[in-house]
Simulated assay, not measured.
Amino acid sequence: MTEIVPGSPCWAQLSARDLPAAQRFYGELFGWTAETDPDPQYGGYTTFFHDGAPAAAVAPLMNPQQPVMWLLSFAAEDVDRTCESAKEAGAQVWMGPMEVGDLGRWALLSDPTGAPFAVWQSRRFGGFGVVNEPNAFGWADLTSRDKDAAVAFYKKVFDWQVWPHDTYPMVGLADRMFGGVMAMDGALPPEVPSHWSPYVQVTDVDATAASATRLGAEVLYGPADTEMDNGPRIALIRDPQGAAFGVFTPRAEG
């Protein structure tokens, strides 16, 4: 995807215990700069910028039981209507719909397989200001305990296109892919819920994985080439506070 359209990923937000540490880690890894909103109602909400464009955000945990994690938001023309459609399709609405100042309208949900996600109706803030270039968001993976049910849910609620595959169906809109869905394998403990992971495009996956390790992160998978035709080289990383995200480098044409 090269632009935000209704139903597409529009924002990625990290919930962290230690905001300054998260700012240092992602700042050193991706060259992101950080700007904290001074309004106390936003509780230290901090936007990451890549070359002056909004790239992602980090916010404090809403309660001590909340896991450190990345949360993906999907664009909606009408958050309230999308929440009703999602509930009818088996989702749980946890927070909202609610106004976020004059920035937009937001709600937090989980899909029928347990994966948290948010929906965002933009007003003054549209979401990603940069995508699909080095050090910016470029892909999203859903790891689900029921792959087929997850695909059916998002197709119904967001009208996503699906490129079928036995193990890794890909999804998108307007003939452009932006993510994939995989089944959760037995290597993950049963208490790990279904979850979305954002992927950041980088110029060199191996170098980025090595830098992440030096900065205190753990490489969970890779770096490795994917088996898809002309697929990217990827790595899955857990940051020093425990949030998982991916990095990828598109494979050169030819």
Rank of each mutant, 00 (worst) to 15 (best):
residue 54 P to W: 05
residue 37 D to T: 07
residue 93 V to K: 08
residue 26 Y to W: 11
residue 50 H to E: 09
residue 18 D to N: 15
residue 21 A to C: 03
residue 85 S to T: 13
residue 66 Q to L: 02
residue 19 L to Y: 01
residue 20 P to D: 09
residue 28 E to N: 13
residue 34 A to F: 12
residue 67 P to W: 08
residue 60 P to M: 05
residue 55 A to N: 10
residue 75 A to R: 13
residue 84 E to H: 08
residue 90 G to K: 11
residue 71 L to D: 04
residue 87 K to T: 15
residue 46 T to N: 05
residue 88 E to W: 00
residue 87 K to V: 14
residue 37 D to R: 02
residue 86 A to G: 08
residue 98 M to W: 01
residue 59 A to E: 02
residue 55 A to V: 15
residue 71 L to K: 10
residue 100 V to R: 03
residue 85 S to L: 13
residue 84 E to M: 04
residue 99 E to A: 15
residue 95 M to L: 14
residue 68 V to L: 06
residue 74 F to P: 03
residue 20 P to W: 07
residue 53 A to F: 02
residue 45 Y to L: 03
residue 80 D to W: 00
residue 59 A to M: 15
residue 57 A to Y: 01
residue 99 E to M: 14
residue 26 Y to D: 07
residue 63 N to E: 13
residue 33 T to F: 01
residue 69 M to W: 03
residue 23 Q to K: 13
residue 88 E to A: 15
residue 39 D to E: 11
residue 29 L to R: 10
residue 60 P to G: 14
residue 30 F to D: 04
residue 73 S to Q: 09
residue 83 C to A: 12
residue 24 R to Q: 15
residue 74 F to T: 05
residue 97 P to M: 08
residue 76 A to C: 08
residue 91 A to E: 09
residue 41 Q to M: 08
residue 90 G to I: 11
residue 44 G to N: 03
residue 81 R to G: 11
residue 90 G to N: 11
residue 38 P to R: 01
residue 42 Y to T: 15
residue 35 E to T: 11
residue 72 L to F: 00
residue 64 P to L: 05
residue 53 A to T: 06
residue 49 F to V: 00
residue 83 C to M: 05
residue 61 L to C: 03
residue 45 Y to F: 13
residue 36 T to M: 06
residue 89 A to D: 10
residue 43 G to T: 02
residue 97 P to L: 08
residue 72 L to K: 01
residue 33 T to L: 02
residue 34 A to R: 01
residue 79 V to D: 06
residue 84 E to Q: 15
residue 87 K to S: 14
residue 47 T to E: 02
residue 40 P to D: 05
residue 28 E to L: 12
residue 98 M to I: 12
residue 80 D to T: 12
residue 64 P to W: 03
residue 99 E to V: 04
residue 44 G to V: 01
residue 76 A to N: 07
residue 20 P to M: 09
residue 42 Y to F: 14
residue 25 F to A: 08
residue 22 A to Y: 01
residue 85 S to Q: 15
residue 25 F to R: 08
residue 77 E to M: 03
residue 56 A to E: 03
residue 26 Y to M: 07
residue 98 M to K: 12
residue 80 D to L: 00
residue 32 W to Y: 06
residue 62 M to V: 10
residue 50 H to L: 04
residue 96 G to T: 05
residue 91 A to F: 10
residue 38 P to D: 06
residue 90 G to H: 11
residue 65 Q to R: 14
residue 51 D to L: 08
residue 98 M to R: 13
residue 22 A to E: 04
residue 79 V to I: 05
residue 78 D to G: 05
residue 36 T to P: 00
residue 22 A to H: 03
residue 18 D to A: 07
residue 20 P to Y: 07
residue 83 C to G: 08
residue 71 L to I: 12
residue 55 A to C: 11
residue 50 H to Y: 10
residue 73 S to R: 01
residue 30 F to W: 06
residue 89 A to P: 09
residue 23 Q to C: 14
residue 82 T to W: 00
residue 42 Y to H: 04
residue 65 Q to V: 05
residue 94 W to D: 15
residue 56 A to W: 02
residue 26 Y to V: 07
residue 86 A to V: 09
residue 67 P to D: 09
